[in-house]
Design a protein around this nucleic acid. Structure first.
Lengths: 119, 119
DNA sequence: TAAACATATGAACAGATATTCATATGTATA
DNA sequence: TATACATATGAATATCTGTTCATATGTTTA
């Protein structure tokens, strides 16, 4: 749909200033997209579980898989997504790769989410 | 995959206590699911844009559609999802239905997300 | 260095999801 | 009360996403 083709309420003349103001305050499309992508990462219960596990302790992939009762492959795929979003980091220790939380935003965001659903 | 069928690292004997501890601290499945569902709602740029619009002012459906340059139907579908998650509420005013933010968790959660992507 | 171990990865499939289109519902107005 | 207006909704479709399976990569150890 073209931009000059959008639907308008009858009261459009009254609201046009509001629409313009809001579009002026709206963040850049890139930021909005990145933000949605970030929340998308939190929007899967497997990844949420992995993050909760890492709240308690850093862990190797195998132990995360065991904790969640899922295959190593499934966990590894999800860890890749969490790492790409910079929510977790990892380091090698011998044969194992240890994953841990990248920073404390993760906790804050999840805590706020918990507050919301607990009401 | 059955629970007694999970893969175990060779070092399993060392880590079994950690796994048990983490499973003990892990929130209930229902809560984990609800939490993921909540973040899923934030994980779409159309819905993120609607929320940013409502940060500035309550609005009727038609004006939201115009602001975002999208159809009334698409916006209405998304508003339904936002309302089901209790992120927005609405009231009727004559022919229009006015949507507004339900509470302040929304701002906090989105602000934290912004902090993360802005680093 | 060959074998075992730990993890990563690509392809494929099944299930979920956002938008569109047509239309229904509810409200105001001529 | 017929018509226009504002919004909601169901079905259909195209796209996206999580898991599985098979296998590749990289490390340790016998």
């Amino acid at each position: 749909m073209a931009l000059n083709d959008v639907e308008l309420c009858d009261e459009h003349a009254v609201h046009i200033k509001l629409v313009n103001k809001i579009n002026h305050e709206m963040p850049e499309d890139d930021d909005l997209y990145d933000l949605a992508e970030l929340f998308k990462v939190f929007g899967d219960s497997t990844r949420i579980k992995i993050l909760f596990a890492l709240f308690e302790s850093e862990m190797c992939v195998c132990d995360i898989a065991e904790t969640l009762g899922m295959t190593q492959s499934a966990i590894s795929h999800q860890l890749k997504i969490l790492k790409q979003s910079k929510l977790v980091s990892n380091r090698r220790e011998g044969k194992s790769i240890i994953y841990f939380l990248a920073d404390d935003h993760v906790r804050t965001i999840i805590d706020q989410g918990m507050n919301h659903i607990k009401e």
